[in-house]
Structure formats: C-alpha cells, structure tokens
C-alpha cells in the first residue's frame, strides 16, 4: 500500500521535473540566441525585405520623383536581359574554377600541414599571408604584375623561363583569358583561407580514431576515405558554402582589375552599376534579389548532397 502511494506520487513529480528542465533548457537557448538573431534580422533580413520591396517599384536613387508600384515588371525585363545572363555565366564560371582549385589545393595543404614535419610552424604562418593583404591592394598589385609591358609575370614567362615568345595582355584581350587571370588572383589569395578552415576541421578529429585504424591495419588511403573524409564533412561543407557564397558575390577583385568592362562583368558589379551609375534602384534591387536566389540555389544543392542537418 505504502509502496503504491510512493510510486504514484513519484510519477507526476518526475514528469513535472522533466517538463521544467526542457522548458528551462529552451529558455536558456533563446537567451543565448537572441542577440545573434537580433543583429541578423536588423542588418541582414530587414535590408533584404526592403530590397525586395524596391524590386517591385520603379524607384530611382536620390530622386524626388514619385515611386510607382510596377509589380513583376522588373523581373520580366530581367528574364530578357542578355547582359544579366552574361554576368550569371561569368560569375558561375569564376565560382566553379576558383572554388574547385581552392578546395583541392587547400585540402592538400591542410593535410600536409596537419602532419608532423620540421618548419611546419613557419609554413603555416607564411602560407596565410596572401589572405591577410587587403583585396584593394592585392588586386592592384596583380594588375600591375599582369601588365603587358612592364609586368613581372610576362618577364617570368617570356624572359626568365621562355614559355611564351611574346608578351601576353592578360587583362585586355580575350574574355576567357581575363576570367582565368582574375581567378588565379582569387586562388592565390583565398586558398590559404580554405586550408585554414580545413586544418581546423582536421584538428578537431579525435586522434584515437586513427590509432584504432592503425591497429586494425588500415592503410593511409583507406584511413583517409573511411575516417578523415566523413569526419571532415562538416568543415568541408562550411568551407564550400563560405567560398561559393563569396565567389558568387565577387565584386572588388573584378572591379579593381577590369572596372565596368561588359564582357567580363559579374552579377554584383552589374547590380552595383545599375544602382549607382544608372541610379535605377528598382532594377538594381531586382538584380540583387536574383543574386540572392542564385546563391540560395547553390546552398540548397550543397545542403541536399552533403547533408547539413545532421547535427
């Protein structure tokens, strides 16, 4: 009898306790998250909503003319805008080339730096320097190094190594050559960043997993595919998303090196040009929203194929 009373009285009290535990955990989570969410809403999502509103109007920058609501007119125009599709092509091409090379090289560098060898501290430090130089400076610097007359790259290729027999105008002639030349600058600057992110991912992998694999007689390559790669996945995903987002939004390196050149224009430069040079707030906003949607498409692809929600 007394035993039964004890069990029945215990049951609701534990039920109540787990409920309050869950509630307090949830409240604590919100306390931790609210500052971040607040800033993100204010400086990120609020401007996005505003831009979407402008994309439905014929608003002009710094104009007192009345703003008219034009519905989807800007979007219909966008779908017929050849120059917009050219900028999409350029930007996606640039993104595939840079992210591909940066990921492959960055992973190799991270794996090597992660192993133990003399001088790796120096290596790790010096390898990061290109990434530390402000883009405005490094892009100008490369523009000068690419110069067809007194550029140092032509000096290397023609005079020092004799690979070409005449100077190449990397940034002046052909669209593809110019795009590759700029991709090379981005790869030079950003591979260290990729290596850094992946190195951190490698360092977080527990070492005893490898010990167990060593005991089981797994060789290096088996270990890489069976252990390193799966455990590195969250870091790989972060790296790919960061790099893809930045490449799709690329602005400064193109702007410094090629200005508003039409055939090599990127999406972000076209949006900026519509907004600032043509003062077309409505259409500039439409392009910006399109960039956002294209980026979202890439993120959805990554998330679907690399399973981001596992945490």
């Amino acid at each position: 009898m007394s035993q039964r009373v004890a069990t029945t009285s215990a049951a609701p009290s534990t039920g109540k306790r787990t409920l309050t535990l869950a509630q307090s955990q949830s409240r604590f989570a919100w306390i931790l998250l609210i500052p971040t969410i607040g800033v993100v809403l204010m400086v990120g999502l609020f401007p996005l909503a505003q831009t979407f509103y402008f994309s439905l109007t014929d608003a002009r920058l710094a104009s007192s003319r009345e703003v008219n609501f034009v519905g989807l007119q800007n979007y219909l125009y966008l779908l017929q805008d050849q120059q917009f599709f050219r900028t999409v092509g350029n930007t996606v091409f640039f993104t595939v080339v840079t992210v591909g090379f940066e990921f492959a090289l960055g992973l190799l560098i991270a794996l090597v730096i992660n192993s133990n060898f003399r001088g790796r501290g120096l290596m790790r430090t010096s390898i990061l320097i290109p990434w530390a130089i402000p883009t405005v400076v490094s892009a100008q610097m490369w523009k000068w190094m690419y110069h067809d007359i007194y550029g140092v790259i032509n000096d290397l290729l023609v005079n020092q190594f004799g690979i070409f027999n005449q100077n190449v105008a990397f940034l002046a002639t052909n669209t593809t050559v110019s795009l590759f030349a700029i991709a090379a600058v981005d790869i030079w600057k950003t591979t260290p960043f990729v290596a850094l992110l992946l190195l951190a991912g490698l360092q977080v992998i527990p070492g005893d997993v490898y010990e167990a694999a060593d005991v089981d007689g797994a060789n290096k390559i088996q270990q890489f595919f069976a252990i390193t790669l799966p455990l590195l996945m969250p870091a790989i995903l972060v790296t790919l998303i960061f790099r893809t987002l930045d490449s799709l939004r690329v602005f400064d390196v193109f702007y410094v090196m090629l200005g508003n050149r039409r055939d090599t224009q990127t999406m972000a430069i076209y949006a900026q040009q519509s907004l600032v040079n043509f003062s077309d707030l409505g259409y500039g906003s439409t392009i910006s929203i399109a960039i956002f949607l294209i980026i979202a498409l890439f993120v959805v692809i990554y998330v679907t194929f690399l399973k981001i929600e596992d945490a």
Binding site: S26, A268, L275, S288, V299, E309
Partner: peptide, 23 residues
Amino acid sequence: LRFPGKQYIFLILLAALMIPPEI
C-alpha cells in the same frame, strides 16, 4: 541544447549568410 524551432533559427542564419553585401 534541445528547443522547439531550432531548425528555423538555423535557416534564418543560413539565409543571412546568403545576402549580397550590396543589398
């Protein structure tokens, strides 16, 4: 931490990452 609405918060953060700076 476990709390309701977690995946939506994560999506908001992800969306914020995707916004082009010129916006």
